[in-house]
């Protein structure tokens, strides 16, 4: 997972599929990044590279959203495939955060 900052924006570029064998390592990186949100107003999660996802991966996104929103920050998903967008909508995650189409 690549994390970059630009002004008051923090961007998470997810590099590996959001599936059970990968999520444990992602959680570690995530926890470190969430300690460095001073001055950040919005977090963008870029799913451009994600082809495969499972419910563990969905839970990772939900957990990320919860952590971000608890800090009072905006949260947005960008560049997800149409299949993943439809999946998130099916799970009604679009009621909680913005999923850009």
């Amino acid at each position: 997972m690549k994390i970059s900052r630009e002004g008051n924006l923090m961007k998470f570029m997810i590099q590996n599929d959001l599936i059970a064998p990968n999520v444990k390592n992602m959680n570690k990186v995530l926890m470190e990044a969430l300690d460095q949100t001073d001055g950040i107003e919005e977090v963008i999660v870029d799913l451009n590279k994600i082809e495969n996802i499972d419910s563990v991966g969905v839970s990772f996104v939900v957990s990320l959203y919860k952590n971000i929103s608890n800090e009072g920050l905006e949260f947005r998903i960008v560049n997800a495939s149409n299949d993943i967008i439809q999946l998130f909508k099916l799970m009604r995650l679009d009621e909680f955060f913005i999923i850009e189409e």
């Binding site: 419910s55 969905v58 839970s59 959203y65 909680f96």
Partner: peptide, 12 residues
């Protein structure tokens, strides 16, 4: 299908 974290599999 809520924002809770577990057991989405079967319903999905």
């Amino acid at each position: 299908f809520t924002i809770k974290n577990r057991s989405r599999g079967l319903e999905l």
